[in-house]
Every structure is written in structure tokens, then in C-alpha cells.
Amino acid sequence: MLRREILSVRSRLTADDVRETAGALADRALELPELAHARTVAAYVSVGSEPGTLALLDALHARGVRVLLPALMADNDLDWGAYAGQDALVRVQHGGKMALLEPTGERLGPAAVQEADAVLLPGLAVDARGMRLGRGGGSYDRVLARLERAGAGPALVVLLYDTEVVERVPAEAHDRPVHAAVTPAGVRRFR
């Protein structure tokens, strides 16, 4: 039910709303020490009414940060490729799912995310415990489990709109908390 509510609110956002908040979101994220010192950041390209990420991706890339972007595989797991600018993205339609913007270059394999100093995660909401509500496809649950199995400890940061930091989201035993949430208005840290 919470997913439907948030998606309904997002569906009413205009392209101008998304564009206006994207700059503020990038500014807040770039202030994070975890990103200021990162050599490699795993991120994603926002689509539709998701909080905009292109300004942030471009700023990280301009800093010389290696930015890894996901490519959705048939089993809903994620492969990774390096971001080489907006011109090196291609729109990929995945069956009945949404179309995603993915990197056109070489695929680095699902384990490439383990090289990241920080992982920027999409989400629909986060609660006071740092538990993230995703879209329900499980792709990022697999990423977080892979990082844990490998003993990798990147900073986990979810990018959201201000109203999407909520009291509580449903969580299952396999869910992992994030370290911070970034919204256009600021940063919220969790234990």
C-alpha cells in the first residue's frame, strides 16, 4: 500500500518538478564526505518521476570519480558498466517492466559493485531505522547481499524526495539498512 501511495504522489510530479529538485539533490549528495573521498561510486540513472540523478552523475564524473551504472539482467540481477556521460546511455526496454537508461560500454559483471566506495540506491521511502523500501523487484536486495557476502563495506545512500523519509516501512529478514538518505532538503543519517 505504501508503494502505491508514493508512486501515486510521484506520478503527479511534472518534468519541471523533477528537474528542479535534481539540482538540489545533487548539491546535498556532493556534500557527503563519503562521496567527496570516493574513487568509485555505484549509482543509477533515474527514470520517469524518480528523484533526478543525471546532474549528480555528471558532477561525480567531472570530479574524476569512476561511476558504475547498472544494467538489468533477465533474472533481475544487475550487471555494471562505467558511466561515460549522458551521450553514452541507451534506453533499454525490459519486457513488461519500465524502460531504463543503461551504459553502452563494456559489462563488468555483477561483482563490479564490490569495488564501490559508495552505493547510491534508488528507493521509494526510508524509515527511521534506515530501512529502504524499493520497488519490489529485488535487484538491489541482491546487490546488498552480494556486498555483505564479499565483506565489502561501501557507504549505502538512498536518494529520495523530502516527503519519502517516513516513520516506518515494511521490512523482511533479508533487508539491509542504508547509512544515509539524501533529499533535496538535506541528509538524514542512520546508525
Rank of each mutant, 00 (worst) to 15 (best):
M1V: 03
L2N: 03
E5N: 03
S11D: 14
L13H: 04
T14I: 05
A15E: 14
V18H: 13
R19Q: 15
A26F: 04
R28F: 09
A29S: 14
L32C: 13
L32K: 09
A43V: 06
E50W: 13
T53L: 12
A55Q: 14
A59N: 05
A62P: 01
A62E: 15
A62C: 04
V65Q: 11
L69S: 08
P70R: 01
L72A: 00
D77C: 04
W80H: 13
G81S: 12
A84F: 08
G85R: 11
G85H: 13
A88D: 15
L89N: 00
R91L: 07
Q93E: 14
E102D: 06
P103W: 01
P103Y: 03
P103D: 04
G105L: 12
P110D: 10
V113E: 02
V113Y: 01
E115S: 14
V119T: 08
L121P: 09
A125K: 10
A125G: 07
D127H: 04
M131R: 04
R135N: 10
Y140L: 07
R142Y: 00
V143C: 09
V143H: 04
L144E: 08
L144F: 07
L147T: 07
Y161G: 02
V169C: 02
E172T: 07
H174I: 06
H174M: 11
R176A: 12
R176N: 06
P177R: 12
P177I: 10
V182Q: 09
V187I: 15
